[in-house]
């Protein structure tokens, strides 16, 4: 367990010094841009899978501290995870910020955002990047033929978050 002071430092550090912040031009990346139309959060996430593992995850965008720090933490957490593990982490994060039980320790630094569960209006800020990564991974799997979903149904593009 960490102290709330440490959590604050982690969040501010990711907010002010975002990781994996440069988007790639490499066509092997699957790019998903999501917006939160009510507040203007706007995050682009790129995922490159290699042999079923997340070979790289990048993110860039604008938004509040929760949205941007969350994207940054996620981009570190998902590196080198298998697609299956990555999807599990995304599901776990979503549970954490909506107050459902989950194994928070597996989220490493991202568990600093557990307090979002006390702020229902901000849940979308926290999950925006994770939702984009999930789509990116599913797209990448579909493109590799490792999933059942046809690639056409998961086309790249700008979309609004639900």
């Amino acid at each position: 367990m960490y102290s709330s002071d440490l959590y604050r430092q982690i969040i501010m550090d990711h907010y002010q010094n975002p990781r994996n912040h440069r988007l790639s031009e490499d066509p092997d990346y699957h790019t998903v841009r999501l917006k939160n139309p009510s507040c203007g959060d706007d995050i682009t996430v790129q995922v490159r899978l290699c042999e079923g593992r997340v070979a790289d995850c990048r993110q860039n965008g604008t938004g509040c501290s929760i949205c941007c720090s969350s994207a940054s933490m996620m981009s570190e957490l998902l590196q080198e995870k298998s697609a299956e593990e990555a999807l599990e982490l995304i599901a776990c994060f979503r549970k954490m910020v909506t107050g459902e039980p989950c194994d928070q320790d597996m989220l490493e630094e991202a568990q600093s955002l557990a307090g979002v569960s006390k702020l229902p209006p901000r849940v979308n800020c926290a999950t925006l990047a994770w939702q984009a990564a999930e789509r990116g991974i599913l797209q990448a799997e579909a493109a590799d033929g490792t999933a059942d979903v046809p690639a056409g149904e998961l086309a790249d593009g700008i979309e609004e978050a639900k």
């Binding site: 009510s38 507040c39 203007g40 509040c64 501290s65 901000r122």
Partner: peptide, 21 residues
């Protein structure tokens, strides 16, 4: 401070205002 971050501070104080575009 991003207005969305600030809005949660006002909310905690029982104040409703608008943050966004």
């Amino acid at each position: 401070v991003h207005p969305h971050d600030a809005s949660s501070v006002y909310d905690r104080e029982g104040i409703a205002l608008r943050a966004g575009h």
